[in-house]
Design a protein around this nucleic acid. Structure first.
Lengths: 137, 137
DNA sequence: TCATCTGTAATAATTATTGTTACAGTACAA
DNA sequence: TTGTACTGTAACAATAATTATTACAGATGA
């Protein structure tokens, strides 16, 4: 997870939340994130396929939230962009060593547990909650 | 944290725990992890500077635990190899946008909270606990 | 004095991530 | 029906992170 995908996804969804239903273009969103529009469209595409966003092509098009923001958990957003375990990769250790043979299994157990600890934390926060932090802006 | 440093560090420390005080060479450890000895020595160097390991140069040298394994928390090992926030980087958003201007601050709060949730989980596990999983091998 | 090992640096190779450009296809509006 | 403004996606380039390799000075004990 050494990338900015979570930050990007949350930024996109926050803008859509605060736009109150009005469709935003990828160009506009990219301007706020300060990121390439094509990258933004890629992340939008991902979030659309997962049902967070609905989008409309063509003139006057853009995207908006497909679900109410108080119904979107930050844990779901994390899952949407998650690619690798939080604590990092494992090695490919020597199977002839008693430790090497077993360690990945034990590491994966630990990684799973760590992941659960994180997601259960993020389950208590909604996109709406996050968006509220910006209302005084 | 898209690297295998945590896995590598824990592997090293587990081997040292199970060797029961006997010094191990970086060559031997590298063989178990299936990693380049120079990389292993780098990680050993890191763990030594942080007080987890003591090492001895020269013929018959090698490294061993500097602290009892039941006194080493997995959270400490995580801290030893931690480089970037768990949930990833932030972007460098547009400061002229009300969301872009504030989002990194809110993201960092969230990242900190997530980090705490993880470390408090890992505080309940010691290197000894982890090593015990291998005793039936 | 030799062999073995650490510690470290320099450098290369590989992979992950981000950025760029291009363009077909959709939708609306004049 | 033509123009304009978008999305969606692919192909590719550039940059950065990660891992691998090699080399060697210095320590240590036999």
């Amino acid at each position: 997870m050494n990338n900015a995908k979570f930050a990007t996804a949350l930024h996109i969804l926050t803008l859509l939340d605060l736009s109150e239903g009005e469709r935003l273009s990828s160009e506009y969103i990219a301007g706020s994130i300060n990121l390439n529009p094509a990258l933004v469209r890629k992340e939008i595409s991902n979030l659309r396929k997962l049902g967070f966003i609905s989008s409309k092509e063509g003139n006057g098009g853009g995207c908006s939230l497909a679900r109410p923001a108080d119904n979107i958990l930050l844990s779901e957003i994390y899952q949407a962009v998650r690619q690798a375990p939080l604590l990092g990769r494992t090695n490919t250790p020597n199977p002839d060593c008693p430790v090497g043979k077993q360690i990945n299994e034990h590491l994966n157990d630990l990684y799973t547990e760590a992941e659960l600890s994180l997601t259960s934390k993020l389950e208590h926060k909604t996109l709406k909650d996050f968006g509220k932090k910006f209302q005084s802006a």
